[in-house]
Design a protein around this nucleic acid. Structure first.
Lengths: 344, 344
DNA sequence: CCAGTGGATGTTTACGTAAACATTAGCTAG
DNA sequence: CTAGCTAATGTTTACGTAAACATCCACTGG
């Protein structure tokens, strides 16, 4: 910076002003400084800048191995939103989702140049790690449910599941089966609960819950079992990948979708539109989740002294995407006599 | 740090030594300092540290929207390897793969606290961006082919494609069809070239090339066309997703896999083992690619003055994973008379 | 014509750390 | 017993930047 100042024939402070776009610099002077910068290949030292300003303009993101598409797209949205706000994003990978690893990530965090942290993680592993959270580092949690202790941003799992079930009931199906995600996932839990509640609200009985593990393979295995349940005319799968396996199993067993069985998924992954048949599913707006995470964390940074406050959960609405995998139940079958039946 | 020094009754320099694990500090003193650190909740300021040391201990990763699974897994491996080496990873997302966006990312890079950059990107967009590369920032490129100008780490596309084709020829197929990726992808280009070369080496004619765009949907469309080519008994798909679409199309058209047609994919994505039938495919070691990227970039940082040197391409070997989608050609069909034929 | 005003620019300083150098104490060997 | 050495610790300084304050100058209005 001193060199630039010398070449431009000004003081280093003026260089700083130009560098930060401050007003109160003559156009003439500004041009000279910029020319000197280019000539010398000057680029501001962000370490010194951070030291002086007391902030890094960087957000940390803690996440498990980037295994699920949802996490990845959330991360992507976080990076994009952060960039727009002039913040960089630093990745803190947690290789194995064990308590030790999580604690390790949080303690590493202490030495890291971040102003705040966004956690994309099921909350139960976060519990014991709380203690080691460096003071002054704000946290927002995505894809979880601990609104009482952290600020949480999440997809409206309940609303999405309800929409899925109601759509099938509105089509005239007697009831809706559910292919759930793994028990240790809160998202799966919430979707399953909403499925049960919505059926109860409509006065329908809930068939036995079938459980998978999010994978297409598990959906396939579940599908083989469901195909034998002749009274089953509608299935709500907790994610699109399991729905894919389900479709394959049903096809293999000669159960036509949507003529014999309707299927609704959850997530709206890119491939869902290319399934056979194209999958009706619940669209999640991961981009919005990411954006809100960044917004939440930045507002925390900017308004200090939000200790007890700043908690609560922000829900991102979902959207039912109609494709070809849903239809009214077969006439001769278990349907309640056609379309007319619409609970609520 | 001064506070810690006061509480521990030592100088700040001693605190620094403890903080950095230097030798030459009495065990007694060390304990006192550590106790003071804990008591005050001290954590080193990485900005000041970076300013003093002249390095950030951070790597930047420039990548297009995290769309393909390969990029994601490479990124994950980079983050993990970097963490092991005491480096953090900062994400530089490029929303749209246009020249402007890439240039923008590179100029933002200038103000960013990174010591080196890993680019996961097709190289042609990197060309014009070269000029704005800040001096002193080392670059390694993954998944590309510009070994003459950058250090490149990539999967051995050629070897993988050759293994796929040879496997099918060894099974006795007359020739192998190829479902290629999009024209603007170098990876797709290299796989297609290797397919053609391997066939030529074996003295076989190359059937017309069928092109997709990496998506399952495009694989499905291509599959419908291939199903009508009765002489086609073996297909090498340039990635697993297209292979998935291909399998579905063939199944729909009543062409049995592997009895009528053998299919080999590329990538070995998680779902490949659950395809119907489980897919024989070329396994890519993305973790190794990521690790080598980090290693390469760190060695550049540590050994300065590698201007002209440090170029070249490192190839990561692939592995043929045998599953159930490949078999000898049908007897009555176009096969060359069974297994015996093994070129080379 | 001059005090007053405000815009443009310069000077000083501190941010937290660690390298380089300085000092002290304890010990060994002659 | 002391010079000479080493290990442990302390002191000074600079890293590059930007806030706070200081200065200068041109112009306005009475």
């Amino acid at each position: 910076m001193a060199d630039v100042a010398r070449v431009a024939g000004v003081s280093s402070q003026t260089v700083s002003r130009v560098s930060n776009g401050f007003p109160g610099v003559t156009e003439e002077t500004r041009r000279q400084v910029l020319a000197a910068m280019r000539e010398l290949g000057y680029r501001p030292n962000s370490a010194a800048r951070a030291l002086k300003r007391g902030e890094f303009r960087t957000l940390g993101v803690i996440t498990f191995s980037l295994s699920t598409m949802g996490n990845i797209r959330t991360l992507e949205a976080i990076a994009t939103s952060a960039a727009q706000q002039g913040y960089a994003v630093t990745l803190l990978p947690v290789a194995v989702p064990t308590q030790d690893e999580v604690n390790g990530a949080f303690s590493r965090l202490g030495e890291l140049a971040v102003d705040a942290v966004i956690v994309i993680m099921e909350i139960h592993l976060l519990d014991a790690a709380t203690v080691s959270l460096p003071p002054g580092v704000q946290v927002v949690v995505a894809d979880s449910d601990a609104g009482d202790r952290y600020t949480v941003v999440d997809t409206d799992q309940v609303g999405g599941a309800r929409d899925a079930v109601r759509h099938l009931l509105d089509l005239g199906h007697d009831t809706v089966w559910h292919l759930a995600g793994p028990e240790d996932s809160f998202a799966a839990q919430r979707r399953a609960n909403a499925w049960r509640t919505t059926l109860a609200e409509a006065g329908r009985g809930a068939p036995p819950l079938v459980r998978g593990d999010w994978s297409a393979e598990s959906g396939y295995r579940a599908g083989l079992r469901l195909a034998d349940q002749r009274e089953c005319t509608a299935v709500f799968a907790a994610n699109d990948q399991m729905a894919l396996g389900l479709l394959r199993a049903l096809h293999e067993r000669g159960r036509k979708v949507p003529e014999d069985i309707s299927v609704v998924g959850f997530d709206d992954i890119a491939e869902a539109a290319s399934f056979l048949p194209p999958l009706t599913t619940i669209h999640q707006d991961f981009a919005e989740v990411g954006r809100l995470c960044v917004e939440g964390v930045l507002s925390k940074i900017r308004r200090p002294a939000q200790d007890a406050a700043g908690q609560g959960t922000t829900l991102v609405p979902t959207r039912l995407v109609l494709r070809s995998s849903t239809a009214p139940p077969p006439r001769g079958g278990a349907g309640r006599g056609g379309r007319g039946v619409r609970p609520r």
